[in-house]
Amino acid sequence: MNRITLFSMVLGAAIAFSSCSPKPQSKTENCFTLKAEDFQKTIDGKTTNLYFLKNGNIQAAITNYGGRIVGLCTPDKNGKMGDVVLGFSSIDGYLKAKEVFYGALIGRVGNRIAKGKFTLDGQEYTLPCNNGVNHLHGGLGGFHNVIWDVKAATDSSIVLTYLSKDGEMGYPGNLNVEVQYLLDSKNEIVMSYKATTDKSTPVNLTNHAFWNLAGEGSGTTNDQILTINADAYTPVDSTLIPLAGNEPVEGTPFDFRVGKAIGTDLGQVETNIQLKHGPGYDHNFALNKTVAGEMSFAATVVEPVSGRKMEIFTLEPALQFYGGNFMDGSDTGKSGKAFKYREAFALETQHFPDSPNNTNFPSIILKPGETYQTQSIYRFSVVK
């Protein structure tokens, strides 16, 4: 499947909206204690700010620093609102954090590229290695660490744009990127991505929200029930680079086809080589697709006490599940509580890791004259 297939009918409906001049709100929203003025800062000559969105029963706070979801509030089974995304109460919190990807837009290429090298059209490109011997999530100067321009904003949506210049983080081509966050009437946050380039370049965009459906700072997520619609996953080496290809999940700790608590099989971390490499879950899942490129169900998470449920749908072929294995309490969020070991998880819709170096994986190469478009939906409800 070629990544740049146009999904104009699907995306057009989600992207169409009445825009107005973006006006960050200075007031506090119902669920948030966040203040826009704490996000107003000049970085590299550009201004950061905070924007509040609301629709149906959900609310979101977005900053153009890294295109981050700062918070997302949704009700539990008793109607009590809770913020289920890890984040900070100011820009300074993000600038000082040990973990750099909280809630951020990721690019040019999400996930890892082995040894920071790939060959395209006969030319080898070298990228900075920021994850041991590998390049991760676009490098230190990736999309998580830049100031996005706010193209438009309404009460329920925001459109962010960024020009990634030729040679930025070693990637070829001037890449024009547009991302929309939309809260729709079905209690969904819809993430729509679009990009064009003037040189062939790899592109694999995603969002790196850390979720805890019990609420930020509410303890372990190991008891939350995860379902992943995948018959296969991607085994990795000790540096988390894919091996030969995908393998069946059946009979392994990676079988989430029937929902189970995230921590059910973590006791095997010393005996299962893949969990040991993690350490824990930090793996790509090959999603089941009837038709390549279709919008389809990817995953569900249910928090049993609050009853909060999150469903994920995506046009992407894969999903990276990360279980918060490297969180160690170094960062303290907007709740005033430290982010501790396995107290959040990430579910990143994406293409496969190290795709530029694996011809058996779906291509992520975007060429001049083509348009990259993809979309993922995170839907919220409750289980009584």
Rank of each mutant, 00 (worst) to 15 (best):
S164L: 02
L366F: 06
S18G: 01
D231E: 14
N111H: 13
G132T: 06
L319M: 11
I273H: 04
W148E: 01
E316L: 10
L136D: 07
N78D: 14
G82M: 07
L347G: 05
T197E: 02
L182C: 10
N325K: 06
T349Q: 09
K384H: 13
V301Q: 02
T201M: 05
F7L: 14
D265L: 02
F380K: 02
N130H: 09
T271P: 10
L105P: 09
D354Q: 08
L95E: 10
K80H: 12
G71R: 03
L182H: 14
I189Q: 03
I225D: 06
L34T: 03
L140R: 09
G293V: 07
M81W: 08
E294F: 10
F52A: 10
D265W: 02
T63P: 03
V109K: 02
K309M: 11
E270Y: 09
L243Y: 01
L50P: 09
L366D: 02
P22Q: 12
P75A: 06
T119H: 05
F254R: 00
V100R: 14
K367V: 01
D184E: 06
N357L: 04
Y65V: 06
M81K: 11
L240W: 12
S330D: 10
V150Q: 09
D38W: 08
L319G: 01
G336P: 09
I364V: 15
R112L: 11
S355Q: 09
G141P: 06
I113S: 05
G93D: 06
I91D: 06
G251T: 10
V159A: 10
G336I: 10
N360M: 10
V177W: 00
W211L: 13
K260E: 07
L275G: 05
E168V: 09
D223L: 05
